[in-house]
């Protein structure tokens, strides 16, 4: 046969897809996006500071950024901020895994097994709409005022989105992929590892991201009631002592934790789902 190179291959050789080439314009746009993202908050803080100084904003409710920052420096040097942050981070970390692992396992089993799904999905979907914060008194009753009640609150927050998204993720996999696996001789565990898990992974990561966000909300709430440490406690305590600066410091740290969490999880998602284009 005389045909040697296809037009399709000639066309793609110019820019091998193996090393994606990004146009310069695209890179510039991305740098500009980053710059804008950093500048906007700084400008707003500047305006805030000015408004407080000229008396347009009530400093009792909206203390100037400079005084919040001053308070933060004090709290850092006294070590207090770190103590409270560390207490919250520990609970978040433990609660995250306590919710994640059962959520993943149960979600996968529910996705793969129709009887298990039939037995458990009414239970899961039925309890899901209960506001998790409304469970706090019950959790305090069962697990006491110690660490466990806070960890469990975080775990509940992580569990639901993970279990629901894992089930949905496994279910939306096209049946054809299971046929392919079977036709190419994959055994049960191989089918799970090569089809069910990667097929559900994008959805699982969405569940984890939602769960982590919910966990952060719940830890703050849980620490406001019956805790002697943590950022939630710090904020609540600041309200009682009327130390508004401290309250803002707490909010700021929580915001930073949330942002860092979403960065880390976004990075993990890109790592475990490298085939996705929309990330």
């Amino acid at each position: 046969m005389a045909t040697t190179t296809s037009p399709e291959r000639q066309g793609t050789e110019a820019a091998p897809a193996a090393t994606p080439v990004r146009p310069a314009r695209w890179r510039n746009a991305r740098n500009r996006d980053r710059l804008l993202a950093a500048v906007t908050p700084l400008v707003l803080l500047g305006i805030w500071e000015v408004l407080v100084r000229i008396g347009a904003l009530d400093a009792r409710f909206f203390p100037a950024p400079s005084s919040i920052f001053g308070r933060m420096v004090d709290m850092v040097s006294s070590g207090e901020l770190w103590t409270q942050t560390w207490a919250s981070l520990q609970r978040l970390f433990l609660g995250f895994w306590l919710g994640l692992i059962p959520g993943l396992v149960l979600g996968a089993v529910m996705g793969l097994s129709r009887p298990v799904r039939a037995a458990l999905s009414p239970l899961v979907s039925g309890t899901y709409p209960i506001p998790k914060s409304a469970l706090l008194p019950l959790i305090l009753l069962v697990f006491g005022l110690g660490e466990m009640s806070k960890i469990v609150m975080v775990a509940i927050g992580v569990f639901y989105p993970v279990v629901l998204n894992t089930t949905a993720g496994v279910l939306q996999i096209q049946p054809m992929y299971y046929d392919v696996a079977k036709n190419f001789g994959a055994k049960r565990l191989q089918v799970f590892r090569t089809v069910a898990l990667p097929g559900a992974m994008p959805s699982i990561m969405t569940g984890i991201e939602l769960g982590a966000g919910l966990g952060l909300i719940l830890i703050a709430i849980a620490e406001m009631v019956g805790a002697q440490s943590g950022l939630g406690f710090m904020i609540w305590n600041a309200w009682q002592l009327y130390s508004v600066d401290t309250m803002y410091v707490g909010l700021l740290v929580i915001a930073v934790i949330g942002y860092a969490m979403s960065l880390v999880l976004g990075w993990v998602a890109r790592l475990v789902t490298p085939w996705r284009t929309d990330r």
């Binding site: 392919v180 191989q190 090569t194 990667p198």
Partner: peptide
């Protein structure tokens, strides 16, 4: 298979070697 049947989550190499790996 009829239609798109290669695994979107595997590289070309991993797709082509699927049966042998299993």
């Amino acid at each position: 298979f009829q239609g798109d049947s290669i695994f979107p989550w595997m590289t070309v190499w991993d797709n082509a070697s699927y049966g042998l790996r299993m």
